[in-house]
Design a protein around this nucleic acid. Sequence first.
DNA 1: CCGACGATTGAG
DNA 2: TCAATCGTCGGC
Length: 200
Amino acid sequence: MNESWLDLPAGAVDEAARLLLGRHVTANHVTVRLTEVEAYSGLGEDPASHAHRGKTKRTEVMFGPAGFLYVYQIYGMYLCANIVCGEEGRAAAVLLRAGEVVDGLTYAQDRRPAARKRTDLAAGPAKLMQVLALDRSANGTSVVDGTGPLTVTDGPDTPFVIEAGPRVGVTSAHDVPWRFWIKGDPTVSTYRRHTPRKVS
DNA sequence: CCGACGATTGAG
DNA sequence: TCAATCGTCGGC
């Protein structure tokens, strides 16, 4: 398969994100076509990135080589997954935000009983994780050599248009349009503008 | 050691 | 609009 997204010049995480759109990710009998992703750059470059303040126990995978999964817990109950991109040490990654379930539909529905429509099965980063049945043990595993639970493959040749905008839930760097999605796709998670906490 | 908060979701 | 829920990280 085309693995060009793994091997990009320095600073081109956004390009990696674009290249991941439309590709298939498969885990635990479910395959999803990626429709929405976000790029995060690394140490000292991107205030919105978990790696911005330097390497910690949590983010150490981001500082490793490309092609590995960075899984983290958010809000005490949900998981999100990134694919590390770029050269080792840069700590750049692409957050997998949403997708369309294209195989293993019955598994996906079992794992997401709250979803009323097919398009809602993986319409969000944590929903995507539930559909793929990935847990924290997926952190640090490879997505390219077949040893990990998640595999990335080329998607269909169907053409699509990429749109870009500010990243979701990110308080800083709102001017950086590093959220990318497939134009018009119904599985793209609904954009909720970050609402600053009301100061009394 | 301790407290504040987050790359979210689903229900009301 | 808001609560659930807890690991992580920065500050003391």
